[in-house]
Each structure stands twice: as C-alpha cells, then as structure tokens.
C-alpha cells in the first residue's frame, strides 16, 4: 500500500515535471516577447501598455524547483524538495461541480498543513481550476471556491490565513486537452504553489 502511494507520488512528480517544463517555457517566452497586453485603436494602430505580468509567472514556479532538486540535493535539503515526501504532491482533484476535498487527498493536505504550520514565513498560492463544461463565469467562481476549500482544510490543520494567496482561472487553463471525462477529471483541480520556489 505504501509502495503504491509512493509510486503514485513519483508518477505525479513526473507528470508535474512535464507540465512545469511547458509552463516554464511559456513564461520565459512571454518575457522575451516584451509587453504582454496590446491595445489597438480604431485605426489598428498598435500601442503597447506597460502592463505587468508578474504574478502570472508564479504558476508552476514551485514545481520547477522540485525538478532540479529531485536530481541532486534532497538529502538534508528542504523537505519541500524531497520527491518521496507527500509535500511533493502539489495538485488535488475534485468531482464535477464540487469543491469538497476528496479523501485520497487528505494525506497530501495534512503534510502541507503541517509544513505551513512549522514554517509561518512560507506562503503558498492556491490556484483553482475547473473543467470546460458550462458557464465560464460560473466556473471562475467555482475554481475560487475549490481553492478556498483547500485553504480552509489547511487552516483547520494549523496553517494561518496570512500564508495564502488564492486565485482562480476557472476553465481558462486546462491542463489536459480533450473533451471527455478523462480530461475533465484532470482539469478539475487546485494547484498548490509555494511562493518564491
């Protein structure tokens, strides 16, 4: 049983690695291309807006560190970098139109709550997502509710409210392309991203 869990954890790690690499490229290219938002007027005269995209690049940031650390230094390093720790699991999933935490995610969440409790200076960004079905605006709210539900669970177990940033992307950032239950299941999620890692 324990072995199974470990394997699952490792698989998740590998899966996260895949996502992270993609996400990482995305953000660095975004930077290279310069201004992120461009407004065009009636004459299609393109002018840049000095909008920042700073917080957008936080996503996947935590997991990215994990990849490098996984190879080299988790011995004696930060427990966050240990691929065998339940802390390495940074995504939890939900049932359709639900924000209830699933039983199989409780171990993961307990570990994160304990870590946050022991490290009160650490902050974590919870990013809620939904599958593509139904209203986009409703899904935006549902993604936030999922993230808040995770925050609530972590707070009940010792984390403090100041340690959280909560965001929702609704159905706008699906993790898996596809229009079936297999894809939807992977997209109904909250990502736990440690800030500055």
């Amino acid at each position: 049983m324990k072995l199974l869990k470990l394997t699952a954890g490792l698989l998740t790690l590998i899966w996260l690695t895949g996502c992270t690499t993609l996400g990482g490229n995305k953000e660095s290219d975004a930077g290279a291309a310069g201004s992120d938002v461009v407004v065009e007027d009636r004459n299609a005269d393109t002018s840049g807006i000095d909008g920042e995209n700073a917080s957008g690049s936080d996503i996947d940031g935590g997991a990215e560190t994990l990849v490098i650390a996984g190879e080299e230094q988790f011995q004696g390093g930060d427990v966050l970098d240990d691929p065998n720790s339940p802390l390495s699991n940074r995504v939890v999933y939900f049932e359709y139109d639900s924000s209830t935490v699933r039983e199989e995610d409780l171990t993961t969440l307990e570990a994160h709550a304990a870590y946050l409790g022991e490290n009160p200076s650490v902050t974590i960004r919870l990013v809620g997502h939904t599958d593509e079905r139904g209203s986009r605006e409703y899904n935006l709210a549902l993604g936030e509710r999922r993230a808040l539900s995770i925050r609530q669970t972590l707070m009940l177990q010792g984390a403090s409210v100041k340690q959280f940033q909560v965001t929702s992307f609704g159905e706008e950032r699906t993790d898996v392309e596809g229009h079936d239950e297999a894809a939807w299941q992977q997209n109904r999620r909250v990502e736990l991203n440690y800030v500055g890692r």
């Binding site: 975004a30 291309a33 992120d36 938002v37 461009v38 407004v39 065009e40 007027d41 009636r42 299609a44 995209n53 957008g56 986009r136 605006e137 935006l140 992307f169 706008e172 950032r173």
Partner: peptide, 13 residues
C-alpha cells in the same frame, strides 16, 4: 474584424 486588445493571458466576458 479588428483587434481591440491582445494578451497572452485569458480575456473574458
């Protein structure tokens, strides 16, 4: 069609 705004991040509603 004219583009009135472009972004690398989602635009909605």
């Amino acid at each position: 069609p004219r583009t009135v705004l472009q972004s690398k991040q989602p635009i909605l509603s």
